[in-house]
């Protein structure tokens, strides 16, 4: 069975680093960055991008709606 591959884009200036997406990710894709955004928050980013399935769980729980999710359907992966 082909593996679903996904990716997320975090709007790092809107992210407040609440960590809820990190906790919600079943694949441990996300972490809080050691750097901060212009407001001083450790923003969320894909520290383990290969594991992302594009399940949207992170975006579901994000209070600031700063996560966009992409997913490649299995049949598209050759």
């Amino acid at each position: 069975m082909a593996k679903v591959r996904g990716a997320v884009v975090v709007d790092k200036e809107v992210c407040k680093g609440c960590n809820l997406c990190v906790e919600a990710c079943p694949q441990d894709v996300l972490s809080l960055h050691k750097e901060v955004n212009s407001k001083g928050y450790h923003y969320s980013y894909m520290s383990n991008p290969e594991a992302c399935t594009g399940c949207t769980n992170c975006a579901m729980v994000c209070p600031d709606s700063c996560i966009t999710v992409y997913r490649v359907k299995p049949q598209k992966i050759a």
């Binding site: 996904g6 594009g54 949207t56 709606s65 966009t68 999710v69 992409y70």
Partner: peptide, 22 residues
Amino acid sequence: MEDTLKIEDIIKPENLVYKKTS
């Protein structure tokens, strides 16, 4: 083959599954 798929290839409009509502 799967490992050759780069993030840039995934982040394309046709693969969008969730974005902030307008």
